[in-house]
Design a protein around this nucleic acid. Sequence first.
DNA 1: GTTTTTTACTTAAACGTTTTCGTAAATAAA
DNA 2: TTTATTTACGAAAACGTTTAAGTAAAAAAC
Lengths: 336, 336
Amino acid sequence: MKRNVTVKTLAEQLNISIATVSKALSDSHEISAETKQRVLDLARTLNYERNPAASNLRSHRTSTIAVIIPDVANNFFSLAIKGIEEIARTHNHHVLIYQTHEDSAAEIAFTNSLISGRVDGILISVTRSAGNLAHFQSLIRQIPVVFFDRSIEIPDAFSITTDDYESAYQATRHLAEKGCRKIIFLQGLDRLATGQRRLRGYLDALNDSGLEQLQPVALAANTDPQLIRDGIRQAIIGEKPDGVLSSIEEFVVPCYYVCRELGIDMPGALKLVSFSNLPTAPLLHPALSTITQPAFEMGRVAASCLFQILHKREVDLLSLPGLHSQLIERESSALV
Amino acid sequence: MKRNVTVKTLAEQLNISIATVSKALSDSHEISAETKQRVLDLARTLNYERNPAASNLRSHRTSTIAVIIPDVANNFFSLAIKGIEEIARTHNHHVLIYQTHEDSAAEIAFTNSLISGRVDGILISVTRSAGNLAHFQSLIRQIPVVFFDRSIEIPDAFSITTDDYESAYQATRHLAEKGCRKIIFLQGLDRLATGQRRLRGYLDALNDSGLEQLQPVALAANTDPQLIRDGIRQAIIGEKPDGVLSSIEEFVVPCYYVCRELGIDMPGALKLVSFSNLPTAPLLHPALSTITQPAFEMGRVAASCLFQILHKREVDLLSLPGLHSQLIERESSALV
DNA sequence: GTTTTTTACTTAAACGTTTTCGTAAATAAA
DNA sequence: TTTATTTACGAAAACGTTTAAGTAAAAAAC
């Protein structure tokens, strides 16, 4: 077995101390340009790779950040990850991804396993079952955390969100303008600030349109597709709405199926708008009207925010770009 | 700042040596049941978490595996990740995810950064631009690697794939049976064994159906959506096919757009089948006929295989379940 | 009753970095 | 010239764990 090349190897071959090598490799000002070059050159030819464990153990820096999300099989999150990765790369950081699958016990287990110094910081979009306020309050005191999209209301917590209120408002008004008189709201995030903002946007829009205020249809607790579908079916049968605003992408496919099952003509008898980043939205039958979030940008902004914290720079939250979602009107909410 | 609790803390409080604590925590047979219990109890009450860096440095075990894939925003891969995670969890391992975005330079950079002991093993689905045989040959000698789905032909390499040949064959026969006389193959993986198997299945099926053999349409080199779309448009205008077999999911959306642009009636004038795990396939207009791979199962099997290697158990490749894709016929390839 | 084995621990040396502190030489300031 | 400062490096101590080797006492084997 070939001996691994370490700082010691380099030091011996160059006849300098390992301290000098280490400092040269991290471009310390204590080392002369000439020595640095010699070290770098040898490191390259010997294919030296710094041992991350040793480095982390000594320096308490891991060059790794964690991303905790409900599910990568969701276009919003996969795009956000793309943005996060891009920023992480520029900071030479690795990205650990954890999926909670909406299980807050898993979420707690993940975060607990992370505070022992496995990562430098955490980007998280919390589970909808969560609401575990105390846990997160304790977490953010132990490690830098940035919430994105699905946030929890904690003072002093960093969170990157979009204009949830405005976009929900706008989408609801849009449905009303297209003639909907009874619009229901499929609530997927009732325990989260994000969900509450979307709900308020919806309710205010109903009010401003002179429409009946309705209780949101809470579909939060489960992640089982069958249960979600049943919940939606019941809501549609029970309420007989002519408009639906869905607060998360996961409800889109079940909505279409339920309409087909019940023989409801979309958009004739029922119009649908959903928060969604589905790339196939324009190709659905009927094409889905969406509130499309700037997922990629959000990932970038959230990650940038985290790195600002890690670099001990003051985070000027006001300087963060305002992120706006976009209502894209398609057939599913068109006038027939 | 609160002092972190380490094995030393536990040892002092229990009046035993740190070695005993360490062994108790890893459930060593050298330690009495009673002592183990005392250690475990105290560890729990003090909220002890093992320092992964120190552990890794000393033991050369990381409790982490890496997954390298082209893109998480692809339903096949996100499902595979789900399967991988599930298995990793049962082995108490963390999962690092790297996206290459089809850039083989990134792929090489990732793997190089991983061999310095950041992870115990690698699961990889290679880029289509790859074909970097020498690099992978060197890699698999340095760290356990399991290829899944997109594999490279290397002797002694572990790779988990599905019945690519058979499913491509079957899909092509299906198109022929539905009346297609000129079926083109959109090749996305021409440099990879996976793509070659799909191509051979297609060609053999053409032959067995008595149809004209055509050059595959190679769309491999780029990942730019516009270029992909242009390539597909050119192929359809140039070849005037009445059937299309798409070897990867990424071509589905552009195919639909091109057909709309060119005013081609699907499935009337052109029928389409694609390898795909799109959850919205049944809701597209027209509903997409797919070859659906057992993505979740593949993730599980690939991860299980990796853990078998890590545990130094002989990997009985024959005992691995044969994974079969499923042809799901829908409107896009229906007889009109 | 003596020897061997087993049990349940302890000691101490790693693992490969980073970082504090020290220092000699070179340079600048007085 | 003397003193102060800067520059460029080295010695050595961490970081928190695992593990090889050692050991006393208890149990088993003879």
